[in-house]
């Protein structure tokens, strides 16, 4: 089944066409990356997929279901998990508590809503497993404020994984990272690739070209090219619009 589809999405802010007829597809098990210069409309696109921004026209479908009019939490409950460009973590919670919250958010539909969050061994072991997947098991009792920036981004991914996602939406997971942190994050993303369909928005070209199965290039709200990394690398229009700009920057 197709994990995620956007169909002719359009969003205008005043006179600015932030999203211009964007159609893209994330196939099951595929890592689809979106690249584009600053101001290309990547955040607006992510917002429409997550449900924070309503498109002016067009559709978003998640696992074959039209979710265009659904709220953020309803899409999350269908299996869409995301991370943010700017870290959104409860700073005074420990790493484990943040993941527990994600686990519990999903489990809150059953009757143990009022349970002591730490007494629920299923939830705790589920959360620890998510922490282990991102390599943060040793940091479980440290508060977010004590974690390095790279670890905080890893923790966000652990939270996304703890919700039992069917599709991952990752908004610039490498932003602001040191080289060492980037390498660890890229390794983590490689380990997730193939196991989850992933839509990755990222600035780091080397990472995108080494990770992605498919790349779409967004410029001024419009997808100017979409294809395999090889096709994108050799696309003249892309080189002119974007990669050339990178090279001279």
């Amino acid at each position: 089944m197709t994990a995620l589809v956007t169909e002719n999405l359009v969003k205008r802010f005043g006179g600015v066409q932030a999203t211009d007829n964007v159609s893209l597809t994330v196939e099951d098990g595929q890592l689809h990356a979106i690249i584009g210069p600053n101001g290309a409309g990547k955040s607006t696109l992510i917002g429409q997929i997550a449900g924070e921004i309503a498109p002016d026209s067009g559709h978003v479908a998640l696992l074959g279901k039209d979710v265009t009019t659904l709220s953020v939490f309803a899409r999350a409950n269908l299996g869409l998990a995301r991370t943010y460009q700017i870290t959104q973590l409860a700073k005074e919670f420990t790493a484990l508590d943040n993941v527990l919250m994600a686990t519990n958010a999903r489990a809150s539909h059953n009757f143990s809503f009022w349970k002591n969050a730490h007494d629920d061994s299923d939830a705790v072991s589920h959360s620890l497993a998510a922490l282990a997947k991102v390599g943060l098991l040793d940091a479980k009792n440290r508060t977010v404020a004590e974690l390095a920036h790279g670890e905080q981004r890893q923790l966000e991914i652990a939270m996304a994984l703890a919700t039992g996602p069917k599709v991952l939406l990752l908004d610039e997971p490498l932003a602001g990272m040191s080289q060492g942190e980037s390498a660890a994050m890229i390794a983590l993303l490689k380990s997730l690739k193939g196991r989850y369909p992933i839509l990755l928005v990222e600035h780091d070209m080397d990472a995108v070209f080494s990770l992605a199965d498919r790349i779409s290039v967004l410029v001024y709200g419009r997808i100017i090219a979409s294809g395999t990394p090889e096709e994108i690398r050799n696309n003249v229009e892309v080189r002119a619009a974007y990669l050339g700009e990178e090279a001279t920057a």
Binding site: E52, S71, V72, F73, A81, Y84, Q88, A102, A105, T163
Partner: peptide
Amino acid sequence: THPHMVASLGVNI
């Protein structure tokens, strides 16, 4: 403090 994050975890804020 983080209503968006909680909503994105699937909670009806």
